[in-house]
Nucleic acid binder design. Structure first.
Lengths: 259, 259
DNA sequence: CGAGAGGTTGAATAAAGTCAACAAACGTGG
DNA sequence: CCACGTTTGTTGACTTTATTCAACCTCTCG
């Protein structure tokens, strides 16, 4: 039971992680669109839309379940976890947001957050006051479409998660997790075959609907099979193809060859 | 082939509070908002927004995976299933839309449907051309908010599904399914304790991430325990409280300690 | 009336969870 | 800087749970 000293420490932590990259404090609408990979069509008056960059240290809460919803956040740097809390206070990891992801959309409907976001590393978030965003969308039809698109896209990701939980066994889930992480890192310009997990085995398990034991065993299994090398939180992917084959639709031919 | 006579049976059209005895072919913006349980603020010119009612017979496809996305549908009457198809063409039931539910939102982002909707009974749908809906939203700030809200709400339902798949065992899943169905029926003015399943055991299993065998066994178990009576697709709920207790967070002292 | 889809049930099997022990890394305070 | 407690991770033995395979039943519907 961790009683947190509140999220007000944010500004102090800036020096902790980013010595050189001095984060600018404000982001333009264009920069926001870039981060979200949205088309941007400049309009007069856009310079009124200025969004604040907020740094967070590791293990800080960005928003908690039950908090009033006012702003969305875009991840500019760092890694987080989005969790739900059940009645007993047990965390359930919903996703691991990273650069370019948007946070807080679950609060739009009820105007209250139903999930809790926590930083797994130092990170920089950009705050998008929802009302301000709506105003910006007014002058940008393509942005408006995109906002619906973002929600629709999230829904598809949820769908994919549901599909995983219904159809994949532990091995396939962990393989999928590694491959998707790898692709995420590649998209950010990092190595796709060598990276650091920011979350614990338990958090991975919670995300995948498995126990930490099963995650650990499965990773050990992959090591023995020569698919990956793991050392603590460091992961080296040795055979991406084999990993993908573990969760992607099985070709009937591939099955024979393996046997 | 979509010719249907009497798409709606007596009870259903009665529940719509429509002044006309037969289903009207057109729906106003106000009627649409009512169905969606959205606030409606009349504006001059709203009578330009007219939405068509489309009847479907049982076992018809409303849209198929891969079809271009143009319209959303609201369920006015009847029952459907929304499924995804994997590479092998195997169905995966995503949800069972019924009155007041909105269909097709997964297509917004890519402008292409990724799911397939099929009627499980005769039904009446109202077609909402997406562009027209956007126009209507322009003049109705509260409607615009609501549209985001609808997507946000769907996301929450997905979240809930994910939570179920990660944490509940077969018994709890089936119990949850029955209770949620029951509440849905109650909301439509039907009996909450006596109703007809429109889907097969296999479809229930697909929805819950279980095999049809497990669903069947679990229902038999409930019968033995005196929680329900089932006879084919007819279900009578005998002990709602016990059913709820099977999946709802068990309250314990832990809750108070946290506060 | 017969074929076929849908449903139930039993026995064997496979998969992941639980319980438990231990080891390795971390970080905090002396 | 080291000692020590805490957190995190690994692994083994056992148990529980749901799946698979199979048989059989019962409704429909043509």
């Amino acid at each position: 039971m961790q009683t947190t000293r509140e999220a007000t420490i944010g500004l102090l932590s800036e020096a902790t992680r980013s010595p050189k990259a001095k984060p600018s404090l404000n982001f333009s609408l264009q920069q926001v669109c870039e981060l979200l990979r949205l088309p941007y069509d400049e309009q007069p008056g856009d310079d009124h839309f200025v969004f604040k960059h907020i740094p967070y240290a590791r293990d800080q809460r960005v928003f908690r379940s039950g908090a009033p919803f006012e702003v969305l956040y875009i991840v500019h740097s760092g890694f987080l976890k989005l969790v739900s809390l059940d009645a007993a206070g047990v965390e359930q990891v919903y996703c691991f947001p990273m650069k370019g992801d948007i946070l807080g959309t679950e609060g739009i409907h009820t105007r209250e957050h139903t999930l809790e976001a926590t930083s797994l590393s130092d990170c920089g978030l950009i705050a998008l006051p929802f009302d301000l965003l709506m105003s910006a969308a007014k002058g940008h039809p393509e942005l408006e479409q995109s906002l619906y698109g973002i929600l629709s896209e999230q829904a598809k990701r949820d769908q994919s998660t549901i599909h995983m939980l219904k159809t994949l066994n532990a091995e396939a889930r962990v393989a999928r997790f590694l491959v998707m992480l790898s692709e995420r890192f590649a998209g950010m310009g990092y190595s796709s075959s060598l990276f650091t997990l920011r979350m614990t085995r338990e958090e991975i398990g919670s995300y995948l609907g498995l126990t930490l034991h099963t995650v650990s065993r499965t990773l050990s299994g992959f090591s023995e099979m020569g698919l990956v090398c793991t050392e603590q939180k460091e992961v080296a992917i040795k055979d991406m193809g084999a990993l993908k084959a573990l969760f992607q639709p099985k070709e009937s031919t591939a099955q024979r060859i393996c046997a």
